[in-house]
Design a protein around this nucleic acid. Sequence first.
DNA 1: TTGTAGGCGTTATCAC
DNA 2: GTGATAACGCCTACAA
Lengths: 340, 340
Amino acid sequence: MSNAAPATIEDVARLAEVSIATVSRAIHTPDKVAKSTRQRVNQAIAITGYTTNAMARSLRMGRSNMILVLAPDIGDPNFSSILIGIENEARAHGYGVLIGHTQNDPERGLDYLKFLNSNQAAGLVLFTGHEPFGHQELAQRLPPTVAVFEPVFGAKVSYVGVDDTAGARKAAEYLLASGHRSIAFIGDSKTKLGHVRRRKGYDLALDAARITPDKRIVIDGEGSVESGRLAVEQLFMRDTLPSAFMCVNDATAVGVINGLAARGYDLPRDFSVIGFDDVAQATYLNPPLTTVRQPRSAIGRQAMALLLKQLAEPGESVEEILIMPDLIVRGSVTSAMRSR
Amino acid sequence: MSNAAPATIEDVARLAEVSIATVSRAIHTPDKVAKSTRQRVNQAIAITGYTTNAMARSLRMGRSNMILVLAPDIGDPNFSSILIGIENEARAHGYGVLIGHTQNDPERGLDYLKFLNSNQAAGLVLFTGHEPFGHQELAQRLPPTVAVFEPVFGAKVSYVGVDDTAGARKAAEYLLASGHRSIAFIGDSKTKLGHVRRRKGYDLALDAARITPDKRIVIDGEGSVESGRLAVEQLFMRDTLPSAFMCVNDATAVGVINGLAARGYDLPRDFSVIGFDDVAQATYLNPPLTTVRQPRSAIGRQAMALLLKQLAEPGESVEEILIMPDLIVRGSVTSAMRSR
DNA sequence: TTGTAGGCGTTATCAC
DNA sequence: GTGATAACGCCTACAA
């Protein structure tokens, strides 16, 4: 609105009747400047409303104090809480956070690569499951990076996420403890690393219970609501309905619950369903969804802590931190005894 | 990863055996440089993998090609689709988009103000309903700005959003057409401008139908799931249950539906419920929610178009664009004849 | 304790 | 058509 150009360090210097060097010092190394001068400078800063030009600063220093968080889908229900964990930790250490939305589009990825390439961010948090792709030359110059939530596909990048296998195992064991013996697994067992790990937890639990897995009730699905609904249809058509559904995530569980309800079944009387993630919606489902809760803010916090560590000591250390999730028991699982 | 510093314009110049000025021209005004030279330059660019340093560029030009989108809550179910509209339009005009998450925290707002203050973004999109607050001096120097979704409280800022009044009126009229005469309004508010407008639509519809509004069934609420649930309790306690609930947004509707279900009522047989927003979840509710759909991507697109216009002609024009929403009929409203 | 001056990577204004 | 060169705003040796 106001036309006046923002005050520069020079404006402050002139007003305080010192050199710009002194102003800079008064700001960054106050003890290296005489008390009286310092006061004059501070006054001048207050009067002019001076703010250091972050761009000029970064250009000179070859490093900014912003962290870039790259996400393919801002709408992911897990994103927001993880982000808050990241932000809190970042802010506590003087970093700001900027978010880039890639939509899994290489063009957009390139935009952000250029952003990084000109030192506009000191560090990178990847929520994408992969590096910004399609532009190898640029992608080689990434700043310290940590992947969050989803591990980066085939790369040597630090990772902080949930212990999918252990979490899924907890879920499966809970189903088993409730007396279920015929437990379907709905999700992607091949490509999505996180899903594969959850599947493994399922296998482990069944194995430990000496139950031979029934391949007919392990259904593919990419983790969408629709995929859950489709799985139900498939199972129904084949007449291989299980007594319980273990879903790779809550979205899938929503689809399963819906599919079952559409078929006229009564939940949780007729079937038990368990999810993974604990999205906000889970409480409001009918029945309220029993699920495994993502330790979201812990993931964010730890990821940022790890990134800060890498920022401090640029050694090429790659760490992987897996956080143990809790089972959240609500109403969607009941004893198998009551089933059919 | 790789230690080599990114190539600069100077590296390219040296390799192509021209001056840096020529390189710059070859990039930005190719016709002003001889064909043969241009080719040499392009080759050198390819070899070195040069990308122009956006920071240096912006510093020199006093203007960047990034747009900053400020949101208080990234998790808002409306945000993601609006954002996509913004991004598509921005990208089509050579702008990149960066997102700042303020969490309604002045400290964080200040961070982004500084960002803006150093010309790191050419334009600003406000999703916040207010300007970054608590820092008047800085907030005066905002770049061209447009508010989206929620109008900015008491300010002369362009705004693009849904026509709340018309949308709410459509909803109320639909309820009326279904025979309802006792229609509660849940989520009344004095502070949230959008909510005030929706209330107005409700009033208008009732008025046109010559129904005297019953203040006892207009319930306050801030638009959360919880507020919807509470409203039901309140109405139940007072024994002033209406035949239909018009909710200020879908979140409130979720709460209402839940509260009613918890009380043992059967929807939509016993009560009709209508929402506003059409969040992704709406389809999966039980019953599927009839609601007014936010024209999200249109809002985003138009907002960005407006911003681009302001960017092109820095006149202080302030426009307000209201987009008409559609009613999405699903299963949560039935004829009043069947009710109690 | 303070000031001078060089340079971070660009673009733009001059000359040639 | 091309090349010096002066900014943009800042930080930091190096001098004083």
